[in-house]
Simulated scan of single mutants.
Amino acid sequence: MDARAHSSQEVLSTLQALVADDLKRVNQVIIDNMQSQVGLIPQLAGHIVSSGGKRLRPLLLLMSARLCGYAGDRHVPLAACVEFIHTATLLHDDVVDESELRRGKATANAVFGNKASVLVGDFLFSRAFQLMTRDGSLEVLRILSDASAVIAEGEVMQLLTSNDLETDEAAYLRVIESKTAKLFEAACQIGPVVADRPAADIEALARYGMALGVIFQLTDDLLDYSAEQAALGKTIGDDFREGKITLPVIVAHERGTAEERAFWSRTMEELDQREGDLEQAIELMRRHDAFGETLRRAETYGEIARASLQGFADGIERRTLDELISFCIARGF
């Protein structure tokens, strides 16, 4: 493991240690609320919930509450609610994308089938809304229900931009802000809301979450072309094979020659892919600095996220959230 990876892992470990007790309680709420008299539901839900995710979105909610000095209990079930929303979207995404691996494990749809995955995803969405309404806050309900609607819109937008090389960076960013960053934003907003902090603090942490979520997706899209499967936990080149138009593709296509653009049209729009095409795609991305451009865009959002934390008191919570920005960017190296 290189120094960057080691440092990044330390950041995540520090974050998890700061909220360890709360995270244990969140995990128990998740387990309790996965239960059903229909045996397939906890079996399938448990398959994906236990598949090795970082619990990053619940961690953000717990940490934002801690940053804002919250001393109650409402953040715990709400963090579980956020994880349920995330898990439900993963179940649906893997069906749409026809994915067979997630974090190195067989996806739920590969094991249990598409129908079961979609229906259990619906169950987890319903559980999330039950947890929201038990909290009793209309503002919390508004934030999380709005996020759920925007995430669904983002997934539809991604479906519409797939295989379409007319997609530009602005359209791509709208997709990832909706489908990924919106839940990061919502998780970070809940902390100051339950802590009854002023609107300026809620808005600042919303900006932080949105920027961090964009960074996370930018580096995820980069990793699809540049990481080993063991490190990434999914098959390299999935986005390429599906014809997903991500920033590395957009940059390489825009900067390419006529011959290179014809290659992108054949492989991404027509999905006429041949042996060696993925390697050629990666070479074209390197030639046109598509990876570097994607990382520079992530670093720009990193500056936005860091600026959003400036109004909060200095301490281990703020420093860890600041370091988390570097952690998310470092995933792309």
Results as ranks from 00 to 15, higher is better:
330 A>M: 07
126 S>R: 05
166 E>Y: 13
305 A>G: 09
190 I>V: 15
332 G>F: 02
39 G>N: 03
303 E>R: 02
26 V>I: 06
241 R>N: 13
10 E>M: 10
162 S>P: 12
61 L>I: 01
59 L>A: 07
111 V>K: 09
289 D>K: 14
333 F>N: 02
240 F>H: 06
282 I>H: 10
21 D>I: 07
310 Q>N: 15
244 K>M: 02
60 L>Y: 06
281 A>L: 12
140 V>S: 05
98 E>D: 10
252 A>P: 11
133 T>K: 10
263 F>E: 13
274 R>E: 15
331 R>A: 07
12 L>G: 01
259 E>W: 14
153 E>A: 15
110 A>F: 12
248 P>I: 10
54 K>V: 02
193 V>Y: 01
247 L>N: 00
241 R>A: 15
234 K>V: 08
241 R>P: 09
204 A>D: 01
117 S>Y: 04
209 G>E: 01
203 E>Y: 04
92 H>C: 12
206 A>P: 03
11 V>A: 03
325 I>P: 00
83 E>M: 14
281 A>T: 15
74 R>G: 05
130 Q>W: 08
225 Y>I: 09
166 E>D: 14
247 L>D: 00
295 L>S: 11
87 T>C: 11
237 G>S: 03
208 Y>H: 12
183 L>T: 06
160 L>M: 14
49 V>E: 08
99 S>P: 03
236 I>R: 06
112 F>Q: 01
111 V>G: 09
192 P>Y: 04
155 E>D: 10
93 D>C: 02
19 V>S: 05
197 R>L: 14
12 L>Y: 04
264 W>S: 08
232 L>A: 04
95 V>N: 06
214 V>P: 07
217 Q>G: 10
217 Q>W: 07
116 A>I: 15
80 A>D: 07
109 N>Q: 14
313 A>L: 11
252 A>K: 04
248 P>G: 12
